[in-house]
Simulated assay, not measured.
Amino acid sequence: MNIAAPDRREKKHLVAFWLSMMLVWVLLNASLSWQVVLAGAIVATLLVFIFPAHGFLFAGTRFTPQTPLLVLGYLWLFTRELVKSNLDVARRVIAPEVRINPGIVEIKTRLQHPTYRLILANSITLTPGTLTVDMIEDSLFIHWIDVTGKDVESATREISARFEHYLIQLSQG
């Protein structure tokens, strides 16, 4: 078996994977004591050696100075959409007459990397009133609380376009 040394790009991904694992470790432990950091470093190093082929989930991401701002923008957008959809569903529940027209719509995504498609599908599912049922290539099938003759383009625009805007920028760096 021929094991080649990792090239520069793979090394960057492994370092990013290690740093990500350390960040998760520290956040979960809520401590920067030397014991916690040392244990996290050991665990993160073991993970890098155990899972080098899988490396980094966000291998499609190029980390730039703009990346943290894009992540914060995406989190702000997600939070705003979450609140709006919660209020919409609550309004529908409280209303004297039931105003729902549930159905499944197809939306198209321009995202190429599977991790970003998964983030999009999960973001859609986490907002009340929508649920990602299936993903086939560049199509996501969404159960939607109020489908009124939506074609693919308008459903895509209403459900996923805002999320995709940030995810495309993140995946392209």
Score class of each variant (00 low, 15 high):
36 V>C: 04
80 R>N: 15
104 I>M: 07
93 V>P: 08
130 T>P: 07
148 T>C: 09
66 Q>D: 03
156 T>I: 08
86 N>M: 08
49 F>Y: 13
31 S>P: 15
58 F>A: 12
138 D>S: 11
144 W>H: 08
83 V>N: 03
105 V>I: 11
113 H>Q: 02
83 V>C: 04
122 N>S: 07
36 V>Y: 09
91 R>A: 12
53 A>F: 12
42 I>Q: 01
82 L>T: 13
114 P>Y: 07
52 P>T: 04
47 L>C: 05
142 I>L: 09
144 W>E: 07
138 D>M: 03
153 E>P: 04
84 K>R: 15
130 T>K: 05
80 R>E: 15
89 V>L: 12
150 K>E: 10
105 V>E: 01
59 A>S: 10
85 S>T: 11
77 L>D: 08
92 R>L: 14
156 T>G: 13
56 F>R: 01
154 S>V: 11
76 W>I: 15
47 L>R: 03
132 T>M: 06
127 T>A: 13
115 T>F: 03
118 L>G: 10
98 V>W: 07
145 I>N: 08
85 S>Y: 07
65 P>C: 00
108 K>Q: 03
46 L>M: 12
147 V>Y: 01
148 T>A: 14
92 R>Y: 05
116 Y>K: 00
60 G>F: 06
145 I>T: 15
50 I>R: 13
62 R>P: 02
65 P>R: 01
79 T>I: 11
101 N>C: 14
84 K>E: 15
71 V>W: 11
60 G>H: 10
41 A>T: 06
40 G>M: 05
56 F>I: 00
52 P>K: 10
97 E>Y: 05
124 I>G: 06
91 R>G: 10
152 V>D: 13
142 I>T: 01
124 I>V: 13
67 T>K: 04
103 G>A: 11
135 M>W: 01
101 N>G: 14
101 N>I: 12
156 T>A: 11
139 S>A: 00
76 W>V: 15
68 P>C: 02
80 R>C: 13
88 D>N: 11
72 L>P: 02
39 A>Y: 01
132 T>D: 01
32 L>G: 14
90 A>P: 05
118 L>W: 08
154 S>C: 09
45 T>E: 09
100 I>L: 14
114 P>E: 04
105 V>F: 05
125 T>M: 07
149 G>S: 13
122 N>Q: 08
49 F>G: 02
39 A>N: 01
73 G>N: 10
49 F>T: 10
139 S>I: 01
147 V>M: 07
115 T>D: 04
121 A>P: 01
35 Q>S: 10
57 L>P: 13
91 R>L: 13
117 R>A: 01
61 T>V: 12
117 R>T: 02
65 P>K: 02
132 T>C: 09
55 G>F: 08
86 N>P: 06
82 L>G: 07
106 E>V: 14
138 D>V: 09
75 L>H: 09
156 T>Y: 07
122 N>I: 01
127 T>E: 08
63 F>K: 02
76 W>F: 15
127 T>Y: 10
135 M>L: 06
41 A>L: 04
147 V>T: 12
59 A>L: 00
51 F>M: 10
60 G>M: 06
57 L>C: 12
65 P>V: 00
55 G>D: 09
117 R>M: 03
155 A>N: 02
68 P>H: 02
133 V>A: 14
82 L>P: 12
81 E>G: 11
44 A>K: 02
109 T>H: 00
96 P>H: 05
92 R>I: 09
100 I>W: 06
73 G>D: 12
154 S>F: 04
123 S>G: 12
49 F>Q: 10
81 E>H: 12
51 F>C: 06
37 V>T: 08
